[in-house]
Amino acid sequence: MTNETKQAQHENLDTLTRGIWRENPVFVMLLGLCPVLAVTNSVVNALAMGLATTFVLFMASTVVSLVRKLIPKQVRIACYILVIATFVTVVDYLLQAISFEVHRALGAFIALIVVNCAILGRSEAFASKNNVGKSMLDALGFGGGFTIACLCMGGVREVLGAGTFAGIPLFGPSFAGWSIMILPGGAFFVLGAWLLLFNWLRERKERAEKFTGTSFENRETSKDLGT
């Protein structure tokens, strides 16, 4: 294997994994918080929302990347929004056909995927500048990162709030759920707690890197809120 192919592979792997951890759309970039907080009161809902968003992100990135050279740059945002809205409508109907119960639980929040800034952000920042293959990898990475974030939220909230995981009871019948976890307030607390954890991990790592003398990148921290 030549050095070049190795490097290309490494780059592709990086495109894929970047969205999952280092630039996680929810925990690091704080994008698309609305669905992450609103529908993650159970694991099943969180998974459905994550997968629906991933689907829309993947399809939109693919299409945007395919037609990126045909779209005049003045109308590009409008075109991206059209493409995204189309796939959201598609996913809305597909979900209704696959599982009516889950669709009822998610309600209007499926339609609100349109305004998930993470999707438009990826279309604009990555898919409009890169080829189809790379855009697909990037979309899968970010979609995966988003789904994992949803599951982190949904898992904690369902386990603490109802004592179940994906509907399976964990603690026996005498467990009284913490109602607050399922209520809106709990969503804010859980996300806040996850951010605390990630901030702490990051600080510890940076301190360790400083200590050993290796250079560390000055990553975008969560202070960058204006997105």
Binding site: C79, A85, A97
Partner: peptide
């Protein structure tokens, strides 16, 4: 510009209508 937007809009509309028609029966049944 208008032409591109029109074409994209048309493609989107066709896709939406196709999905709607193919899933409608199942949704009603559900």
């Amino acid at each position: 510009m208008v032409l591109t937007m029109g074409l994209i809009g048309l493609a989107c509309a066709i896709l939406i209508v196709l999905t709607y028609q193919s899933t409608q029966a199942t949704i009603e049944e559900n």
